[in-house]
Amino acid sequence: MRLLTHNMLSSNIKGVTNGFPLRIEIEKVVEKQVDFNADFLRNMFPKIEWKALVGAARTLGYVELPEEVEPSRLDSEDFLRKFHHALLELHLEEGALVCPETGRRFPVSKGIPNMLLHEDEV
């Protein structure tokens, strides 16, 4: 699971109002090389919740992303490379995503999060 996916997932339990970002529990992280594409990153940037990405990357041990970011940084290849690495190359392979409000764990197995709910959570 890329951190891009973590950035797009919220707790879907009924009644939860503050379900984002999901906390990350790590059992195994892997890095996978992905072709760098500056245009894709520039298109993706406005769709990303930056603070959540910075926090998730730190949890996985990557601390190179700045806390705050101005859109002008998208002209810097150095910045785009870091954004690329955090967004696409760091994978949570085993672990869990945890609802920040209820503590409910959504397991991540072989890189795939399972967001299925029990009947009483829907």
Binding site: L9, S10, N12, I112, P113, M115, L117
Partner: peptide, 8 residues
Amino acid sequence: ITTNIASG
């Protein structure tokens, strides 16, 4: 993602 339609 294992989920029902696009839940989450």
